[in-house]
Design a protein around this nucleic acid. Structure first.
Lengths: 124, 124
DNA sequence: AAAACAATTGAGTGGCTGTTCAACTGTTGA
DNA sequence: TCAACAGTTGAACAGCCACTCAATTGTTTT
């Protein structure tokens, strides 16, 4: 006897109970999409290096540009994205705009990821 | 007097001491690139939903395909990427391949990110 | 007021990546 | 042994995104 095929996916359920159980616990669609977006913002080497720098010290755009050897424009674009995601906050002082990490929560996640990578290095 | 312009970036250092200090503490290039790659893998809604499902229960490819209403192929491609990044591990049992999270460390980072998102929801 | 410069912004482009499609491998059961 | 099916894989294509370039804003200094 043929199990029911389900819409798009090209196969049938093998463990109905597990699928049902997981589906029931599943958070709202938007929650997991937001989570993906959050990680996506951190998933770029320029932004990660900016985040690392800001985790060490508050800095302005020019300093970041010099530190990472990139144009102010490129840095500013990435900072705008980090700001849109509420990962950094700004403080203007005269001509300069100083960036720092948004809050301790962001710091936590970032440093947790950092630990993970360093841990992996050790276990090679 | 004009400060030294530095190579690529189109400006001069404003806080030499801060840049120097941060540059000195900066981890190896590869470490931060690895960190970005790690977050990048988690920065996709399909992979995040897979990770969430596996954080709840071990599952095989067909079950995941049904749960997320996607083709086995699409799921399998993403699982391959998660495996390459050592975020999941596999166990074969007959025709089925069961996937689960790689280790508690991965679980930690993932759940930390989840907490962050849920926290943000509350504060709106 | 105007020059100088930090920073932002929008358009454009080249490279990256997630899904589809088709072919294939591996295991089981008849 | 062969059909059925779980899973993998490579090529191709479409959509996304990081940087460049040029123009603009905002602040300070002369």
């Amino acid at each position: 006897m043929q199990k029911n095929r389900v819409e798009v996916c090209d196969c049938s359920v093998i463990h109905q109970n597990i699928v049902d159980e997981v589906k029931e616990k599943m958070p709202e669609e938007t929650t997991l999409y937001d989570l993906a977006d959050f990680f996506k913002v951190l998933g770029d080497s320029t932004r990660v290096r900016i985040m690392w720098a800001l985790d060490t010290s508050e800095m302005c755009v020019c300093d970041l540009a010099v530190l990472l050897n990139m144009t102010k424009s490129a840095i500013s674009h990435q900072l705008a994205e980090l700001r849109r995601a509420d990962l950094v906050r700004t403080r203007r002082e005269g001509r300069n705009v100083y960036y720092s990490l948004a809050d301790d929560h962001v710091r936590d996640v970032f440093e947790k990821g950092m630990e993970h990578i360093l841990e992996q290095d050790n276990s090679l």
